[in-house]
Design a protein around this nucleic acid. Structure first.
Lengths: 129, 129
DNA sequence: CTGCATCCTGCTAGATACTG
DNA sequence: CAGTATCTAGCAGGATGCAG
């Protein structure tokens, strides 16, 4: 994620247009917080506050923004219970669940190779200092 | 990708530290241009100018930055031939090649489900206008 | 509890000009 | 050809305060 990802809209020009898939292969999931929210929701429905607590370091602004994004993309379901105080539950939609497997695979890659990446960085930094 | 991704360093605090893998599952590949460069290099060694031409819309600054990043992470090999004018070739390293499969899977997901995402967006925008 | 509105700052990425 | 250097606008994201 390299520091963070913009969550704003892509340019209008592409918003609703056809493929160009390579360009957007990651567009849906490639935010720092998106991955984490996804990981939390894999294990089932969660309330806003739960997510806020589980995801260390997320601000409420970013969490809300991320959830809205995912909801808009049809990956996450937002259910509001008109109680007092309000209760809001988030869960993966069926479409969202189709993303679990690809995410897991990427995750596995990280587990397997992240150390190599770190070492490559150290060497690079050493040689280019 | 949602508009773009920062290519700067993650915070120093994490730079060389241990796992926390979920947090960085996508950190290595989650830049708009990274995916595209990767896709270009899958088919073999390419020169800087080739990449520049193939990847529509990339500025030379971003291309260079992305390539440096990938090189630093040990995913891409940069080979300079001391000719005049200079020739620089880029290719995937063995480590880089291990990422091809995960990327392909994500790519497949996009092919299969991107239309659903677009439609979800349209509906969301319609209902929340 | 679950947000939205606002202000503010730093950083990103584009544009432009220059070089070995 | 393959970059580096500099300037700048715009936006992302944190902090704070308020609300249903």
């Amino acid at each position: 994620m390299r520091g963070g990802t913009k969550l704003n809209e892509e340019s209008e020009q592409w918003e609703y247009e056809s493929p160009c898939h390579y360009r957007r292969a990651l567009e849906v999931v490639s935010s720092k917080w998106t991955v984490l929210v996804f990981y939390e929701l894999e294990s089932g429905t969660k309330r806003y506050g739960d997510l806020k607590r589980s995801i260390e370091g997320v601000t409420q602004k970013m969490l809300t923004q991320t959830l809205r994004q995912l909801e808009r993309d049809g990956l996450v379901d937002r259910r509001v219970y008109p109680s007092v105080p309000p209760t809001v539950e988030y869960s993966l939609t069926p479409l969202g669940e189709t993303l679990i497997e690809p995410m897991r695979i990427l995750h596995k890659w990280t587990d397997a190779h992240y150390d190599s990446v770190l070492q490559a960085r150290r060497e690079y930094d050493r040689d280019h200092s």
